[in-house]
Design a protein around this nucleic acid. Structure first.
Length: 447
RNA sequence: GGCCUGGUAGUUCAGCUGGUUAGAACGCUAGCCUGUCACGCUAGAGGUCGAGGGUUCGAGUCCCUUCCAGGUCGCCA
């Protein structure tokens, strides 16, 4: 049965105590993370959103019914009263921020018992999404997820602080709006008072922020939900939050400067990272030509090389005809990686680029015992040496080629580039390289 | 809508060319244990192998249908 607090007040969160608090009487409340039952001595790791604290129940010191302690199980919600004590040197836990101390418990209240959870509440959980969502309230107890939501809070706060300091007004705009198509499908909400008519949910507050500018509010922002009724991706939800803003009487550089400052503040506050400003800028065209993407990851090389001119007059008809039709042939040289890619792995990469519409992919392996490639036989010696020079080929390299329309070449090599970087471990975790991509085309070909 | 991968114990997974009683780890239950922190030791419970049909002497395994999930392309700034 559950007990009431009956006047117990929590002293502080579990992980907020330090060696400064030794000797203090405290009251803690939280969830049972783990229990280690040694008989007349029972350890409980008590968890709340701050972290863990080891609490110790010693049968000879505990002032309540010890069988109640023996009955504690995972995820019981309990309150304990006791004293913060220093741990003996040999019982210090260096893995725990609170590992120098523990709570010697005198009194216990079981506030809520719990059934055995359907999965363990721990970081790095590999439980399938469906089950996690069914028991969302349990999944959200994981420290990992609590960190994520706490970081969101932090980001929202620093965003408000920064934009407020820069003269922006936070203004809400309507959620039930007239459909203003932006390209994505709108979510629709049936109207009760106008049968047969529908509201749309905003894909962005675009129209409303423009009204605000026309009306003279000058600088506006809003941390707001947006909705797009399209299929999901691992990194794309139909409902998402964006920091929306609009400024009057400014030019592109002013908008970029404000955002650089905002992003710098967010990185500092949320990750304690110092970001250099101003950010690098590259044009859309340069991004596509060098990385095959309009949102390039510039933390590693593997840049694309346009070899269209060098293959357009060769006997390799596939490449020659692609160039003749206005497409291009581009290459990625993976330096020193020839032994990383056995024939089977090359074939897997060929299949990979086919996802993006490529009909195939050619390669040249610069093995120490000689070149291997399905295409070099089509080239004259001069053509081949010019090609190898252009891609900076040396012994040990492997070079991949895709020839097609620009769109397919960019898509397939741009994605191949990311896959290669992942496979080769070229992206250092926790590093950032921010940049602006400018001069986006006003229109795109629709095919 | 297309393609790929998967669905076996509470969870994560293994289960080969079809062959006795479907396994492991963690979790769970019971007992023992006063310094554990992945506690340990002993014992134990736990399965409609997603569903339906077919092939076969025999199906978790092969075939068909279907449902569900994840990823991805299309789509989407």
């Amino acid at each position: 049965m559950s007990e009431q607090l009956m006047g117990w007040k929590r002293t502080d969160y579990c992980a907020n105590f330090t060696i400064e608090d030794i000797g203090k009487p405290v009251t803690l409340m939280g969830w049972v993370q783990t229990r280690r039952d040694l008989g007349a001595l029972i350890f409980i790791d008590l968890r709340d959103r701050s972290g863990l604290m080891q609490v110790v129940f010693d049968a000879s010191k505990f002032k309540g019914d010890f069988s109640q302690v023996e009955g504690l199980r995972s995820e019981f919600v309990i309150a304990v009263q006791g004293e913060i004590v220093k741990r003996d040197d040999e019982t210090i836990n260096e893995k725990l921020p609170t590992g120098l101390i523990e709570v010697k418990v005198e009194a216990l209240k079981v506030l809520s018992k719990a059934q055995t959870p359907p999965f363990e509440i721990e970081d790095g959980s590999k439980v399938r999404d469906e089950l996690r969502l069914k028991y969302r309230y349990l999944d959200l107890r994981r420290p990992e997820l609590q960190q994520v939501l706490m970081m969101r809070h932090q980001i929202a706060q620093v965003t408000r602080e920064y934009l407020n300091d820069n003269g922006f007004l936070e203004i809400e705009t309507p959620m039930l709006i007239k459909s203003t198509p932006e390209g994505a499908r709108d979510y629709l909400v049936p109207s009760r008072v106008h049968p047969g008519a529908f509201y749309a949910l905003p894909q962005s507050p675009q129209i409303y922020k423009q009204i605000l500018m026309v009306s003279g509010y000058d600088k506006y922002y809003q941390i707001t939900k947006c909705f797009r009724d399209e299929d999901l991706r691992a990194d794309r939800q139909p409902e998402f939050t964006q920091i929306d803003m609009e400024l009057s009487f400014v030019e592109a550089d002013d908008v970029m400067a404000v955002n650089e400052g905002l992003i710098k503040s967010i990185f500092k506050s949320a990750l304690d990272k110092d970001i250099e400003t101003p950010f690098k800028r590259i044009t859309y065209k340069e991004a596509m030509d060098r990385y095959g993407s309009d949102k390039p990851d510039t933390r590693f090389g593997l840049e694309l090389v346009d070899v269209s001119d060098l293959v357009k007059d060769t006997d390799f008809k596939v490449f020659a005809s692609v160039v003749a039709k206005g497409g291009s042939v581009r290459a990625i040289n993976v330096k020193g990686a020839v032994d990383t890619f056995a024939r089977r792995e090359i074939d897997a990469l060929v299949d990979f680029v086919k996802i993006y519409g490529a009909k195939g992919m050619a390669w040249i392996s610069m093995k120490s015992e000689g070149m291997q490639s399905p295409i070099t036989k089509f080239f004259t010696e001069d053509q081949l040496s010019a090609l190898l020079k252009e891609v900076d080929a040396e012994t040990g390299d492997i070079i991949f080629f895709v020839g097609d329309t620009d769109k397919i070449v960019y898509d397939s090599l741009g994605n191949l580039r990311l896959k290669l970087a992942e496979k080769l471990g070229l992206i250092e975790e926790g590093t950032y390289d921010l940049l602006w991509v400018t001069e986006f085309p006003m229109f795109e070909y629709s095919e």
